[in-house]
Amino acid sequence: MSDPPIRVLVVDDQALVRSGFIMILDAEPDISVVGEAADGAQAVELAVSLRPDVVVMDVRMEVMDGVEATKRICHLTDAKVLVLTTFDLDEHVYDALRAGANGFLLKTICRAELVEAVRVVARGEALLAPTVTRRLIEDLMRRPHAVLRPPARLAELTTREVETLRLLARGLSNAEIAAQLTVSDHTVKTHVSNVLSKLGLRDRVQAVVFAYESGVVAPGADPD
């Protein structure tokens, strides 16, 4: 028996963009678009009533923006939120990640990348646009109002787990982390799981944000 299709809610204030996303996603046999919304308030209502697996969320909208909508949807439902934006250094996107979004991509992605992003997020994995997300976070951390706050629970991590967190913040995959630490993929999965559990984080996206906010990774540091 095949798995049920991934239920998707598409949110964007531009009707043409919404239609395009819907057409692309509905053409896939394993994805079903169950609703569409033109603003964040409507998105929250539909997310609660339709219970989609994934919400494809625009950021800049009238009535309620994508950041507030993401925060409410993550609080009220189990839906995964995939944020799409036109701006790669949009502070609102950073806020959306902190609000609980599971992924962040630019609207310049191709058809195949959008489809795969929905599948990845639906599986419960975090999805970051690698260099874009790093630039976004570093840009914000350089600003005067950004204050690093090392939480006490950081001390619960082992040395290896701290190293894993640093590599996560650089956007490395499990395989790349394994190569860096000279360990197996299984060991990396264990380290990542321990990091998320000990720090009370939901996924890799929140781990990246945490790493910068806590000072584990220095803003502007050479990623290589």
Rank of each mutant, 00 (worst) to 15 (best):
E125A: 13
M64A: 02
A129N: 12
L46K: 15
R149T: 15
L50K: 15
L97V: 09
A112G: 09
V63K: 08
F104L: 05
Y94L: 10
M57S: 02
A99M: 05
L50W: 13
G35H: 10
F87Y: 15
R134T: 03
R123N: 13
A152D: 14
T77G: 08
K107V: 05
A117V: 09
D88P: 15
R119L: 07
A37P: 01
A155T: 14
R72E: 08
V33G: 01
R51M: 15
R111D: 10
L148I: 08
P130R: 10
V55D: 02
R142Q: 09
E91S: 14
N102M: 10
V44H: 02
V44L: 05
A43K: 06
P144M: 07
L82Y: 02
H92C: 11
L127F: 05
R153F: 08
P150A: 08
M64G: 03
A38F: 11
A79R: 08
F104G: 00
A146T: 05
T86K: 13
F104Q: 01
L154W: 06
V67E: 04
R143F: 06
V67A: 05
V48I: 15
L106N: 06
V48W: 07
A155N: 15
G103I: 01
A126P: 03
A126L: 04
L105D: 01
G124V: 10
E62D: 12
E113N: 04
N102K: 10
A69W: 06
V63C: 00
P151Y: 09
V93W: 01
A96N: 02
R135L: 09
I73M: 05
G66N: 03
G124T: 10
A96G: 00
R143S: 12
F104K: 02
R149H: 11
D88T: 13
R72K: 10
S49N: 15
S32M: 04
T77N: 08
G20I: 01
A117L: 08
L128V: 06
R18H: 02
R135Y: 08
L136H: 03
G124C: 12
V59L: 15
V147T: 15
V83M: 06
G40Q: 00
V48L: 12
K71T: 10
L50Q: 14
P144V: 12
V83K: 01
R142P: 00
A27W: 08
